[in-house]
Design a protein around this nucleic acid. Sequence first.
DNA 1: CCAAAAACAGGTATTTATACCTATTCACTA
DNA 2: TAGTGAATAGGTATAAATACCTGTTTTTGG
Lengths: 223, 223
Amino acid sequence: MNEKIKIGLVEDQALFRTGIKAILSSWPGFEVVFESADGYSVIEKLKQGAPMPDVMLVDLSLPPNGDIEYTGEQLTVELTRLYPDLRIIILSVHDDENFIARLIESGAHGYLVKDCDPQEVHDAIVAAHTKGSYINERTLRAIQKNMGKKQKPIKTEIEITKREIEILQLTCQQYTADEIADKLFISVKTVNGHRNNLLQKTGSKNVTGLVIYAIKNQIVNLA
Amino acid sequence: MNEKIKIGLVEDQALFRTGIKAILSSWPGFEVVFESADGYSVIEKLKQGAPMPDVMLVDLSLPPNGDIEYTGEQLTVELTRLYPDLRIIILSVHDDENFIARLIESGAHGYLVKDCDPQEVHDAIVAAHTKGSYINERTLRAIQKNMGKKQKPIKTEIEITKREIEILQLTCQQYTADEIADKLFISVKTVNGHRNNLLQKTGSKNVTGLVIYAIKNQIVNLA
DNA sequence: CCAAAAACAGGTATTTATACCTATTCACTA
DNA sequence: TAGTGAATAGGTATAAATACCTGTTTTTGG
């Protein structure tokens, strides 16, 4: 009577993916029916009739497929929109509260750090499948703190806009404000405006801080 | 007649460690006899009579144990010194040639990037155990380039000095050249001199490039 | 539709960073 | 011991970034 829980894996590192798969397969009641190495191809494969999992484990640090950048966050948003029944559990190396809260807000049904116990993965998958979500203490705290922030009119949260992310990414590619202005067909003044906002929002002193922030928050890829 | 190859795992992420272990255990002829989550405890455990593996898989991004920082590189140096018969295979997310060459020079018998095929891990362990080392094409290229550099009197190689690393680390902490000069009790001119050398050596255009370089080459910690 | 936020653009001024030089001292080593 | 590289320090420029302002247009959400 107990059907197996169908699991999907989205993880770029083949070794880690195989490892997780081996762990999952060693448990009864679990079945890996879907695998992908990048975010973009996930949607493609599912549209083309790939088996639909019950629970999708998504690695956050996804590499771009060709020119198309597709982060774990974008994938989460897209998946929840297209397949509301699909449960999504995020796997990430990041333990930042704002980061966790952001992903949950994007629609994820659970958030696990990559150095967690394998048993927790088991529990998370079962909980996500049967109860709809798996919120551990860490995640709960992150959500609560962030909820609190949203309720207050005080602007303590950092929310970075799309354009700011663009400028940040180009900045990390060693482009000067002038070059970025040329690339985006906007004025240098505007670029500097965005940069100043970024310095404020991230609490950085200079570009150095911006680069560190961008890497920590996976706004840029180190690859 | 075929004894199992005894394998040691040094990897901080429990999930990844379990995954690797599951993969290794699924192959006949392999046996995981040693596990550790950080570099410092490896030496401790071995000294206290933990089973000595034939091949040790070492993750490069090891976390500090308490106050003691122990990188994969340091561990490699120490292990080869204490146990010359032990074969060491590095597991890393970094694909930088200088980085690879540095580790091989430190005594590693093989270097694998974390997104490699599981089969390659298999081959690497076997090769390291039977032939003493596993040098794939990527590693070979890295070594050759670096050897070539060392032989030529031409200054194409990047070798960063201690002082430059200091300046680089402080730069990554958002200190300006002035502040660094104060901290190190040297002239701003000197700091700028070091920075200019760093820009040249790393092929960077500005501090942004330096920060990225520092993170990629683990000269600074993101934690 | 209205209000807020985001993106845009400008000015002025100062601080930092970078480019390109030279030159000295010190430690190591071939 | 002669030579090398590292670390030190200086000068002179220019380029770039940062700090503060002001404002308009466009987009977005309630």
